[in-house]
Design a protein around this nucleic acid. Structure first.
Lengths: 138, 138
DNA sequence: ATAAATGCAAATAGTTTGCATGCCC
DNA sequence: GGGCATGCAAACTATTTGCATTTAT
C-alpha cells in the first residue's frame, strides 16, 4: 500500500516524505473526513516539529495527485479523506452524524442532468444535508 | 415584495433596515449566488458607511429567517442567494459557469436515500461539479 | 548534487465579537 | 424608553507565502 504511494510519487519526480506518509496513514486509519487541524494534531505526535503549514501544503499536494479528496462540509470547513472509493455523504443538520452512500445511486440523476443541461457532472464527492433517523422526532 | 419582507420581520419583532433591504435587493437583482464581499461592495455604494461586519451579521440573520439561502460552492467560500424557489446548481470545474436545475429532479434520489439509510435529506441547495457542454472537448 | 520539501515566521483572507452609539416602534 | 441594529476597531480562525535550511533520491 505504501509502496503504491511511493511509486506513484517517484514516477512523477516527487517524494514520499515521512510527513506525507503520516498524513496518508492517518486518513487511511480514519476512513472518514478530517479537518487539516485534526490531521495536524494527530500527525505532530508522530513527527515532532511538524507545522500546520506543511500539513496544508501536503493536503493540497496530495489532492492534486489524486491521493486524497477534499470536500466541503457544512460550516465552511474544508475536510479531507483518503481517495479510493467513490461515495457521498449524508449529514444530519442537527447532530452532525454522517453516513456514506454509494456513488451508483447518483447515476440516474447525473444522466438526467446531462439530458437536460448538457452538463457532464462528475463530482467525486457530494454532501447532502437532512435529518438522521434519530433526529427526525423533532 | 418589500412589503412581504417588512411584515415578516415585524411580526417577529425585527426591523427591516435600509442595510437589510439593500442586501435583499442586491440578491434579488442578481438571482444567483454572491459572496459576502461581493454583496458588501455593491451595498456600500448605496449605503456609504456600511461595514462588512454588518453585511455578515445580516446575512446570517436573513438566513435564519429563511429569507436568503447559504450554500457552499467550491473553494471554501460561503455564498448567499435569495430564497424562494428550490433549486440546485451545476458548476463547471473548468470555466466556472453555473446552471440551475429543478429540485424535483432529486426527488427519486432522496427517496432512495431514505429507504437505504433512514436519512431524510432536505438540502435546500446542493452544488454538483462537472464539465459544461463547452468545456467537454477537453 | 540538486531539486523537492520542510520549518519558521509573518502575511493574508475571511469572519466574528465587544462595546458605545444610533434609531425604529 | 427599550430593545434592535449599526459602525468601528480589535480579535480570531483558517489558510497561504517567502525564505533559508534540510532532506530524499
Amino acid at each position: 500500500m505504501d509502496d503504491t504511494y511511493l511509486k506513484d510519487l517517484r514516477a512523477k519526480g516527487f517524494r514520499l516524505t515521512p510527513q506525507r506518509l503520516a498524513i496518508l496513514r492517518i486518513l487511511e486509519a480514519n476512513g472518514g473526513h478530517l479537518t487539516p487541524l485534526q490531521i495536524y494534531q494527530q500527525a505532530v505526535q508522530q513527527i515532532p516539529g511538524l507545522t500546520e503549514a506543511t500539513v496544508y501544503r501536503n493536503l493540497t499536494f496530495l489532492a492534486e495527485q489524486g491521493m486524497v479528496l477534499a470536500a466541503h462540509v457544512g460550516s465552511g470547513q474544508l475536510v479531507y479523506e483518503i481517495a479510493g472509493h467513490d461515495h457521498h455523504h449524508l449529514i444530519c443538520r442537527i447532530c452532525g452524524q454522517s453516513c456514506e452512500v454509494e456513488h451508483s445511486l447518483l447515476q440516474d440523476l447525473i444522466q438526467r442532468f446531462y439530458e437536460q443541461t448538457g452538463f457532464q457532472v462528475d463530482t467525486p464527492h457530494v454532501t447532502f444535508f437532512g435529518l438522521c433517523p434519530g433526529c427526525q422526532g423533532k
